[in-house]
């Protein structure tokens, strides 16, 4: 009898392991291939997302009030600095508007309906973050019903922070640029050097120790120096052109000495995300 019970336990463990691996493999495959998760999962996630807001909204509100008190202390100094910046910005903005208008007219002139730089923005709030060390992932409160589609780029502050990895009806998951997994979609970017040349490439990963994005396998001869701006190139899919990724922090030869490797300082603080913008390209 004792032996029987031991065998039964072993069988249960092995069955559990097999089922677990099967489920994981299937869900990873679905996540990588399909544009939306299965209907049951979507439905479940929508309901859980609604329930989560009951907890998340008061928690985020509390956080807002606490941080506003602590920010009150250096408000005066910040105000002085910001006033100066605002007067400069107004001028830039007017010029920007004029240029955008001119650009639109010129496009109409040559009957160009949409170019790589055109996109509309969906603003979303971050509900919660995945409590896991393996996935740098946040959940936002806009989904398919607001027009979010899988793989769309997500921005916060002044720069790119990640891409939409799963879309439900009323919420979606955003995989941050700091995520290092194999299936992460790497962004096609371009570096504009000081000499006016552009270098195209693909982001290759994230170095957690220094908090920098890496870009590998560059075989360019043009010199890339510190401070050069990195923006998305708009090549190969749903990402529009011209989203700011960061600035070059360091340019080194790669491990085998054949190509160049770049370390990029992200434009936004990736740790602290509250409001994000999903960029929707017109297609």
């Amino acid at each position: 009898m004792q032996k029987f019970s031991f065998n039964r336990r072993l069988v249960i463990i092995i069955v559990c392991l097999i089922v677990s691996f099967a489920l994981m493999t299937v869900s990873v495959a679905i996540r990588n291939k399909k544009s939306t998760p299965p209907l049951i999962q979507q439905f479940g996630n929508d309901i859980v997302g609604l329930a989560d807001r009951v907890v998340a909204l008061p928690a985020n509100g509390l956080r807002g009030s606490v941080s506003s008190i602590s920010e009150l202390l250096n408000t005066y100094q910040e105000n002085q600095q910001l006033k100066k910046q605002v007067s400069e910005l107004a001028q830039t903005k007017v010029r920007d508007q004029t240029l955008a208008k001119e650009n639109k007219q010129l496009k109409q002139e040559i009957k160009l309906n949409g170019s790589l730089t055109d996109y509309t923005a969906i603003t979303a709030a971050v509900i919660t973050r995945t409590p896991s060390s393996w996935q740098n992932q946040v959940i936002i409160n806009r989904g398919a019903s607001a027009g979010v589609v899988k793989n769309m780029p997500v921005m916060a502050g002044s720069g790119l922070v990640g891409r939409v990895s799963e879309v439900n009806k009323t919420n979606s998951k955003v995989e941050l640029i700091t995520d290092n997994n194999d299936s992460a979609n790497r962004f096609a970017v371009t570096v504009s050097t000081k000499s006016g040349k552009t270098v195209n490439g693909v982001l290759s990963g994230y170095k957690a120790a220094t908090g920098q994005i890496t870009m590998d396998n560059l075989t360019t001869k043009s010199k890339i120096s510190k401070g050069d701006k990195v923006i998305t190139s708009g090549l190969g899919g749903v990402t529009p052109k011209g989203l700011f990724v960061g600035t070059v922090a360091k340019s080194v030869g790669s491990d085998y000495g054949l190509s160049t490797k770049l370390y990029i300082t992200p434009a936004t603080d990736l740790g602290d995300l509250n409001i994000v913008t999903v960029a929707v390209t017109k297609q």
């Binding site: 985020n60 409590p131 740790g271």
Partner: peptide, 22 residues
């Protein structure tokens, strides 16, 4: 849900690379 909210609210402190607290 508090797990997720704590991770979100204190993300600067908990997910300060390289060490991660869950």
């Amino acid at each position: 849900f508090l797990d997720g909210s704590i991770s979100q609210i204190f993300s600067v402190h908990l997910f300060s690379t390289p060490s991660v607290m869950i």
